[in-house]
Design a protein around this nucleic acid. Structure first.
Lengths: 155, 155
DNA sequence: AGGTCCGTTCAGTGTTGACTAAACGGAGTT
DNA sequence: AACTCCGTTTAGTCAACACTGAACGGACCT
C-alpha cells in the first residue's frame, strides 16, 4: 500500500512534531508540515487524519493554524467535496515574520517601560535600551532573511 | 522603602515573564531577567525571592536555568554567605546561540531524513533540501547577529 | 558537639493546553 | 423530505510542567 512509508520518513515526521513542540506549538502541526514536506502534493482532510492517526478535530484545528500562519493553503479538487491542502508558495517566510513580530512586540514593550520610568538612572535606561535593541536586531534580521528567501537575487 | 517600584517597572517585569512564557520557558525566569535589567547590580538569593514573591525553590531552579543559559552569573560577596547573581557580560548572545543550535539540529535532522530515503523522487529531495536550507539560514543569521553583538565593530 | 543560615531536592498541587469523542450544522445527493 | 458526507465546535480527559512547602544536607560559627 502507498502509505507504507519507510522508517526515515516516519522518523522525520515525528521529529518535526518535536521540533514544533520545542517552539511552543502543537506537536500535530509539526507532523502535518512534515508530512507535506514529504508528500508535497495536495492532501485531503481525511488522508491527513488517516496517515497521522489523529482525530478529524485535530486536523481541523491544526490545518487552520498552519493556514493562518501561511505555511499551507486550503484548496479544492473538482468533483470532490473534501477540503484539500497543499504547501504555500513560500511556506517558511511567514514563520520568519512571526518571529519578527514577537521580537518587535518585546521591543515595544521595553520602550514603553522606559517611557514610564519615574527615575532617570542612566544605567537602567542603558540596560533597557540594550534589551530593546537586541529584540529589534532579531526582528530586522528575521525580516531580512524573509526577503532574501522571497527573491533569491541575493547571495 | 526601596522596593516600592513604580508601576511601569512592575509591568515590565511581568511582561518579561509573559514573553518568556510565550517562548516555552518558565514565567519566573523571565521575571528574574526583567528584574535584573531594571536593577542591574548583584542581587542576593533572598532578595530575588522577596522582590518577586516566589519561593526559594523557584529561585534556585530558575537562577540555575538562567545561569546555564549564560544570561546571569553566580557571584559572591565578601563576608556574605548568600549567593549573589548579576547579569552576564553579554547576556543576550547566549540566547542567539541557543536559537542557532536548535535550527542546526533541525537541519541535521532533515539531512538525516534525506539520507535515509529509499525512494529518490527529486521533488521530495528538493522540499527536504529547502527546509534544511531554511533552518541553516536561521542558524547562520543568529550566529552572525551574535558576533555583531560581541564586537560592535560592525557596519 | 549544637545551632544557624544557606541552597537544593523531592513530593505534592494547580494549571495550562493538546487532543479526542461526540454533538452539531451545512451542503450535496436521492 | 431523509440521508450521507463533510468540517467545526464543544465538553471533557489526560499529560506535562511550573510552582510551592517541607525535608534535607552542607558550611560556617559558637
Amino acid at each position: 500500500m502507498a502509505d507504507n512509508r519507510n522508517a526515515a520518513a516516519d522518523h522525520f515526521v515525528e521529529s518535526m512534531g518535536l521540533h514544533f513542540e520545542a517552539d511552543g506549538m502543537p506537536r500535530i502541526a509539526g507532523r502535518i508540515l512534515g508530512l507535506f514536506i514529504l508528500e508535497g502534493g495536495p492532501l485531503s482532510f481525511a488522508v491527513l487524519a488517516e496517515r497521522l492517526k489523529i482525530s478529524r478535530a485535530s486536523v481541523s484545528t491544526n490545518t487552520r493554524l498552519l493556514a493562518e500562519m501561511g505555511v499551507i493553503e486550503r484548496t479544492t479538487v473538482s468533483g470532490e467535496r473534501q477540503d484539500y491542502f497543499r504547501m504555500a508558495d513560500s511556506p517558511y517566510v511567514c514563520l520568519l515574520h512571526k518571529m519578527a513580530d514577537r521580537a518587535d512586540k518585546a521591543a515595544r514593550m521595553t520602550d514603553q517601560a522606559v517611557a514610564g520610568l519615574v527615575e532617570s538612572d542612566p544605567d537602567v535606561r542603558r540596560r533597557l535600551g540594550a534589551f530593546s535593541e537586541f529584540q529589534r536586531a532579531i526582528a530586522t534580521s528575521a525580516k531580512r532573511l524573509a526577503n532574501s528567501i522571497r527573491n533569491p537575487a541575493k547571495h
